[in-house]
Amino acid sequence: MEYRDTVALFASCPVDLFRPDVGFATARLLEQAGYRVEVPPQSCCGQVNYNNGDARHARELAWQIVEQFERYSYTVIPSGSCTGMITCHYPELFANDPRQARVSAFCERVYELTTFLVEVADFQPPAALPATRHGVVTYHDSCAGLRELGVKAQPRELLRRCAGIEVTEMADTEVCCGFGGTFCVKFGNVSARMADDKLDNALAAGADTLAGGDVSCLLHLAGRARRRGLDLAVRHVAELLADAGGAGIGEASAPEGDA
């Protein structure tokens, strides 16, 4: 098979640690779109340090990412938050630093997954997926993807194209779910209320599945949904697009032996 190009996959910590399925789904989608996928050694993009007032360490981690990934034509990330950290904040982080030009040149080739699939790859699925599997799907617009990157139409377009899913919009879909990195542990009471608003809106829209583009937000929402005993599946959009089976986030996996 002739590849169009090679793409570096940056999984993001939440995917790497909690939801490898999303990484594999991403790789599958990129392959289907005609790209060879490589996964260079990686850790955190630096956002945790950056947002908690530790720019020095954030810069060190950022530079490591640049060095590991800059040789690829594209870096693709199944997360609006980490992509926004790189494309919007790395240049700020290296302001007044001789490395800034190199950093900026790298940042221009970093894409959030659904944006890459729609705008660069013009992804056409190999075969339509069964739309019924996930019931009524609503999509939560995670903040960084929405506001820093303009991710809004792309996941909806892909869901329509790949699985014939018309997203059922909930109220306040653009309002934060309350994750916010360390915010969710430092201000747990406020964060939980924000999650409840989001989950209640999803249920009020009649959703069976709450989809999103950031596993971090989805871990928080799924964790809160489980704590409240709500009947709502939570999944990353890449899982829906790649028809990954398995349990939703925070749901019991299939019986023993599936390891």
Partner: peptide, 27 residues
């Protein structure tokens, strides 16, 4: 599918369950 309490992570688990990781890391 979830953990109700996790040592040192009470900031998370006081208000929500922690979805269990799927096993080994993606990398």
């Amino acid at each position: 599918g979830v953990l109700r309490t996790v040592p040192l992570a009470s900031g998370w688990t006081r208000y929500r369950d922690l979805p269990a990781p799927q096993g080994a890391s993606f990398q």
